[in-house]
Amino acid sequence: MSETLATLTGVSKTYQKGKERVEVLHNLDLQIPAGDFIAIMGPSGSGKTTLLNLLGGLDKPSSGMVRVGDAELSSMSNSQLSHWRSTNVGFIFQFYNLLPVLTAQKNVELPLLLTDFSGKERTKRAAIALDIVGLGDRARHYPRELSGGQEQRVAIARAIVSDPALLLCDEPTGDLDRETADEILKLLQILNREHGKTIVMVTHDAQAAEYANRTLHCDKGTLEAREAV
């Protein structure tokens, strides 16, 4: 691990909940080296997902700075963030969030619609991504025709198809049985080790966190580091 991919400096995030102001993250500092695989654990409401949203440019900090690569996310407009997300970050959700009306192939192609690639090039790249996750033969299947594990593999293919440096996973195995969860986590490990993807994974599952290089515990808006066992 060498250069830093993402840096959070003095990041706080406050939400207004009715008349009450709730501070979810408090003066957080974090450096994520390129090629790292970090698991973030912690109780519900501890700010894990908020941290992920800030790293992915889905939300902005109330104060502090979020930098990913060369981009200073905290100062970018919404349209700049949209454009940045399309090429720099891949998202993997607990419930896969595939579009049910599209085949696996077309779901994976979605991020490429935002590029200048031709239709043929999009098809080719989506096929490669599906091959990487081991679902090359399921390209024409709709999400309803796939198992949960297969759906999550398609979601991973969609996350990597535009070759982003950073993958953000929000409980990626939360909806899967142990065996399937292990398959998905091994796939994430391969993406980290062989394809050099930097991965930040939010999880409640201690066994899932073991696949990461290190685990950070989030509690009451602050982070505490623990090395992987």
């Binding site: 992915g56 919404n78 349209s79 940045w84 399309s86 959700f93 935002l114």
Partner: peptide, 16 residues
């Protein structure tokens, strides 16, 4: 709603 949110997450702009 959630699918539209996913599109925006992937980088589709508000205008798109």
């Amino acid at each position: 709603i959630s699918e539209l949110a996913v599109l925006k997450t992937l980088g589709f702009s508000d205008r798109s």
